[in-house]
Write a protein that binds this DNA or RNA. Structure first.
Lengths: 349, 349
DNA sequence: CTGTTAGCGCCTTCAG
DNA sequence: CTGAAGGCGCTAACAG
């Protein structure tokens, strides 16, 4: 006995009341069955009838109304500096899959345009569009760091530690770097340089520490200019490698601390006429789709970025549930894995 | 005379009522001044007082409540297949900047994980989390194509045309491809191949058409196997190039229809020992950061992706305003531009 | 110029 | 097992 089907929509939205009317029950009952409230005892009959009507009408709950009363949106945001970057794709996938599994919808905001992280923060968290934030964006100025204390309970910082009570999750940079250096060591290199990231970024500092520790553990020394700081971009890698190649004695191998930089580094070698891996071996931190197609194919250490995204999302969820989570969690599993390709060889004689 | 400062927050949210109380006015007045309603006549005095209290309390309007009554969220979504891709970064930036300018907040959803475009569509549009969608995601199955007719008024499809009343915006693939081919022609090539994208994707078909048109306009013939279809990935480009190199007579130049594929194509040449550009010239469709750092640096045609994002957002806005927008708009400006690097040379003798 | 009054669509006690 | 009532935070007429 279908009675009111078309008065269902006004501005395209079928509402609870529409379904209630169609099923001849009160809208509160509809709410109960459609939200699958466990402690709601509704007869099979009405339950089925309601479900049937809802399906027929194509009812979808309005997230805003629901968020308003529940005081939570079940959506979380992920802030990244640039959507084009190599490392973020997997983080996004991991966080997205985890979010979905837990009933959240994940939206990402790119802070590379004219939009700052602060702006995104306000628009998303303060205005209540999201319950919490995963922040993988590099520089967030003090405005956010000194933000309302309640904000610290709604954010997880990825791969970076900042002041102000925020919790962070970081990949195991030291171990990753050690893995790469080990490959170089195993090939017989004893003069190894590190093409590092910016000095003021802590994830990059950790990679340098990993580098130094690994080299020293092998009984070797690390000299001042064995570590050259550069940015994370292709051009930075290029410039940095030029400097390394100009140093003397020139190292026979270099561990590059980022994927983009490694591409620039390779280009620098080509321009300078130094052959990889015959004259110089290279291992790059972070694996990418294209590593296998470079010239030569790059040996890389693949960090568990997908897992980082997953774990970050889980942490955020726990925190939003009110659980206390550690100020810093280091992702120790899954472990980084080395992808052997063709940029590492024994040192020239 | 600060009186009630701390009763301001309950669950971290300062509400209109809090401000009203603090300023001793009705909350509707506060609403008026804070929304900067032009046709609201409020005395300077109360206006200032309200503003002052709002600032002091750190009032930020709740987006959900506002969305609920205004029936619009002022947020739009952008669906992309994978955040790691080369082409999307600029689209996102363009759309993001345009959105901000128009007062929207842009959120992007990656549909590459376990999440399908349909899921994202429901979670974002149907549940009312966003007002509209920019869809750059490749395959959206029929479920979305045949979706509620009202949906067609809330989406703009990027670089793809689909059935069902949706409006699309596409870049000028033909012109871009022609630009690349012209460079090859100018260098003296007469046997030019096209390493194309998937046959069933219309943006890639348009590139092929541009290729054919340009070649023919030069008075040359295009044979059946001058166009080889591949995917958009590095591996696809690699495989495709292998096939091209195996054909005989072998072309002296190839126009590659995507950035990722061009990287694979380059790798294939290296593996086969054919030197670029001495034995084979290459121009790639879409410019990327890394093109300049490849071996050799790739000559590319840079498509106006940022502009595409901007225009798409503008179109969506107009459509959401109820304006009628064309079913198909082709972005003719800004124009594609050629980046000359080192992958094109005259054909071998 | 400012306050009062209705809701937006949904959830959630509390009765019945 | 189901209906009635109140309210989440905000906006938008309509009075005064």
């Amino acid at each position: 006995m279908p009675k009111s089907d078309k008065n269902a929509s006004r501005s395209g939205g079928v509402t609870l009341a529409d379904v209630a009317r169609g099923a001849s029950v009160d809208l509160s009952t509809v709410s109960r069955v459609l939200t699958r409230d466990p402690k709601a005892r509704v007869s099979e009959a009405t339950r089925d009838r309601i479900q049937e009507v809802a399906d027929r009408l194509g009812y979808v709950a309005n997230a805003n109304a629901r968020s308003l009363v529940r005081r939570q949106t079940m959506t979380v945001g992920l802030l990244i500096p640039s959507i084009g970057g190599f490392v973020y794709a997997d983080v996004v996938r991991g966080a997205g899959d985890a979010a979905r599994r837990m009933g959240y919808v994940l939206v990402v905001a790119d802070t590379s345009g004219s939009g700052s992280a602060e702006e995104a923060f306000r628009a998303l968290v303060s205005e209540g569009r999201v319950d919490g934030l995963l922040i993988a964006s590099g520089r967030l100025t003090d405005s956010i760091e000194s933000g309302a204390t309640s904000a610290t309970q709604k954010c997880i910082i990825l791969n970076r530690q900042i002041k102000g009570g925020y919790s962070s999750i970081i990949e195991d940079d030291e171990k990753g770097m050690a893995l790469g250096v080990a490959e170089l060591l195993d090939a017989g290199h004893t003069r190894i340089a590190c093409l590092a990231g910016p000095e003021n970024v802590d994830t990059s500092r950790r990679r340098v520490q990993g580098f130094k520790a690994a080299v020293r553990a092998a009984g070797l020394r690390v000299r001042a200019n064995d570590v050259v700081s550069a940015g994370f971009s292709e051009q930075d890698g290029f410039d940095g490698m030029i400097r390394i190649l100009a140093s003397s004695p020139r190292p026979t191998a270099v561990a590059v601390a980022s994927a983009a930089a490694s591409i620039g580094a390779l280009a620098a070698c080509r321009v300078q006429g130094v052959s990889v891996p015959d004259e110089l071996s290279i291992v790059a931190f972070h694996d990418t789709e294209i590593a296998a197609f470079l010239s030569p194919p790059l040996t890389t250490v693949a960090m568990p970025l997908y897992g980082l995204g997953v774990r970050a999302m889980e942490l955020l969820h726990e925190q939003l549930q009110g659980e206390a989570i550690p100020k810093l969690t280091r992702l120790t599993s899954p472990e980084p894995v080395l992808h052997r390709r063709q940029s590492v060889a024994p040192p020239p004689i």
